[in-house]
Design a protein around this nucleic acid. Sequence first.
DNA 1: GTCTATAAACAGATAGAC
DNA 2: GTCTATCTGTTTATAGAC
Lengths: 228, 228
Amino acid sequence: MDEAAQQTSPAKRARKGAPRPPRRAERGETPASKSEQTRARILDAAAFVFARKGYSDARLSDIARTARMQTGSLYYHFASREELVAEVMRAGVEQVHAAVRARMETIPEGTPEVERLRLLLECHLLTLIDENDYTRAISRLLGQVPPRLQLQHSANGRQFMALWRGLLREGQASGALRADVDMSAIRMLLLGAMSWSIVWFKPENGPAELVARDFARMAVDGLRARPD
Amino acid sequence: MDEAAQQTSPAKRARKGAPRPPRRAERGETPASKSEQTRARILDAAAFVFARKGYSDARLSDIARTARMQTGSLYYHFASREELVAEVMRAGVEQVHAAVRARMETIPEGTPEVERLRLLLECHLLTLIDENDYTRAISRLLGQVPPRLQLQHSANGRQFMALWRGLLREGQASGALRADVDMSAIRMLLLGAMSWSIVWFKPENGPAELVARDFARMAVDGLRARPD
DNA sequence: GTCTATAAACAGATAGAC
DNA sequence: GTCTATCTGTTTATAGAC
């Protein structure tokens, strides 16, 4: 047990620049200490609130209430509002990234490149809009948070960006995708279209699966190299 | 001259629910009264600030400074921060709408439907990212403002939405666009991709024209009805 | 119409009891 | 670890002089 090191609050330790130990939950183990559980409860509450209210309208008091505690108590677990936002965003990216990677595993070997791309786009969009507070929050927060957090976010998402960049570039290299477009811009436009869907998507207007399917199809058909 | 009616401030009159007379600038005439000019200067300043800082970080004091006046003075022209935001958004939609409609006029008769659609998408995206504070502001504000303003915004944009809905539906009806996709979703995804571009687009990474061209091409090629 | 000064409200953050 | 109480800084908005 490293409980001995727990002489002060997690937030205080973080403020001192001490490296954050990997959370047990992140290591795939069952959640452990009470502090750990409470922290998770606060994060869930924050994601819930941010997803619905956006950045500027979300009050720490809202988050505290949702997590069933007093506002001041949050500061035992997080050093500031900003840290809370950053953590929600980090977790959000992580979840989409994980979903897409997991989907990759399930695609049979030998599946044509373009079809692979289509399935992954579909997965990405579905994960975003399919009732996950973290991913909903992240999409809403992205355009709103202060530049510093945006930078931090892109740092978090770099690996993920790299995945998409790789997929698109390989597609071009192999001749499956048309060579005469700027894939950087296309990548951002595709990711943007999906992120933005959080703003307008309502389950009432049709199932997420259909939206995802139509979008992925349009995208890959529009990018597919054509004989003509 | 209706200066006689100007016994009180524009903001006060608006608060009383009096219908706002159409601005001379909107009627295509040259800007007129000093009040009118100042109001325009404030709006420009607000667009400038909102485009760069987003909703929550934009302070009335920033806007006032940009407009070269004191914060308190703003209230002679606008009843509240919210009214200012709403006006910027309204003007922003108006400008994109106007640009796309203007572009429609210049497309030669007999241009194939799909090509028309491509040109208009290009125009829409270009207008958004090509250094216009109002359109930049609007894209950034959309996901951030309180629900009430979002509703008001969609009301403003209804005509514009209708334009795109019409274009896509006609394309489907005539057989130019594939019939087996949900055009409502596609419409939102396309508009979203474009709106989101404000967040990531930087002129350094390549000219806006190229981004617009590649996007429009991907979209229409992905939607085009195909013989196969 | 614009300025200065200030009221009113509030959010984020901290301190100390328990 | 959480609570209560409070401080501090900001911001929107108003009042009244000019």
